[in-house]
Design a protein around this nucleic acid. Sequence first.
DNA 1: GACCGGCTCCCCCACGCGGGGGAGGCCGCC
DNA 2: GGCGGCCTCCCCCGCGTGGGGGAGCCGGTC
Lengths: 216, 216
Amino acid sequence: MPITVLLVDDEPLVRAGLRAILEAQPDIEVMGEAADGAAVVPMVRQLRPDVVAMDVRMPLLDGIEATRAVLRTVQPPPKIMVVTTFENDEYVYDALRAGADGFLLKRAAPAEIVQAVRTVAAGDSLLFPAVLRAIAAGRGNERARAAMEKAALTAREAEVLRQMARGLSNAEIAATLLLGSETVKTHVSAVLAKLGARDRTQAVIAAYESGFVTPG
Amino acid sequence: MPITVLLVDDEPLVRAGLRAILEAQPDIEVMGEAADGAAVVPMVRQLRPDVVAMDVRMPLLDGIEATRAVLRTVQPPPKIMVVTTFENDEYVYDALRAGADGFLLKRAAPAEIVQAVRTVAAGDSLLFPAVLRAIAAGRGNERARAAMEKAALTAREAEVLRQMARGLSNAEIAATLLLGSETVKTHVSAVLAKLGARDRTQAVIAAYESGFVTPG
DNA sequence: GACCGGCTCCCCCACGCGGGGGAGGCCGCC
DNA sequence: GGCGGCCTCCCCCGCGTGGGGGAGCCGGTC
């Protein structure tokens, strides 16, 4: 069955764009749209979407309050993916702290948007936002570590990430772990996917930010 | 004038290899060789090399003691580059703590060996070892920060490194700093060279390890 | 038995990355 | 004035990286 999505954004243009991009995917179905936060809870109750793509800055009820409202009143809660224009939007942290499962930049490429929906829907929950959430929660290293665990890296993947954080290349990791370089590539790809990282550098950053590895 | 180098290693094979690699460079001159640490001080006094390529594990007087002896008795002291077989050689940390300016793996490619000599000779002092030294000195963040400053990144390079540590690609850094992507590449290359990093991932690791950026 | 997840390895392919050059403009220092 | 450092941008080129597939093996689960 397809991933069902509810779009929440005050700009029709954005909703249309998201709809066009997501509907082009055979495994994703846009169930409905809401123009403000106040309409979200009733629609979620009625439609029961897997994922809510939620704008942060909205009239009436913003994304943060809407996220809280949904999580407080709907069981089981849908996955909530925060959508924002600015990378360092303070509100995003608030939304993540309120319990959102991921975040997405509006200027992201269509493929990234699609992938973000799939990832959030799978419950894997992008680590980067999770880390951000931990940070937003007050630099709590505790929650960050939990977030990393939530990413549920396998033993092998964790080991590979550790080597990545030592600055090793795929070939070097293969040598140290006595693996084929193709195998390492597979693990690295899995790590990148689970951590919501685009490349190994971002993965290492996530490793540091989450406390998976520590300086010194 | 060429960079003058003194080779110190108990294995003739290693000395011959280093000599062959370094002598092939027009700007590097091997002034002499020593087979153990005890012979180092007199030779340094007599030859006044710019750089001493010093093996760590040696009979009579090991590389750590020899490094201390040289730095204590010769003014101005030569640059001391520790040479080792194993990546995680405990002795290397001791040597770096004793004041060595860089370190080199024996299995490094000839081009890397040459570059390491040039870098150490230039007084730029590879950051990675400097960071390692700071770590070896007792996880002192103080010294690590000093090490990073010693790498003497320009204002622009530091800014670019900061963006790298945010996980941005060259194109993204170009966009945020309002630069051409070619310019960013230039700065990135400069950062990699000064930090002794092979790629951006290693540079970001160095940034974290040195306290240039901190988790959270 | 069938199933699934983890681990291993393989293919192809596009692209960003990093190294190697060079070049011009700007500013401060001697 | 000359010089060097910094910043800016350009070229070419090789290669590692990461994404897209697929496949076999094993061990635990139902």
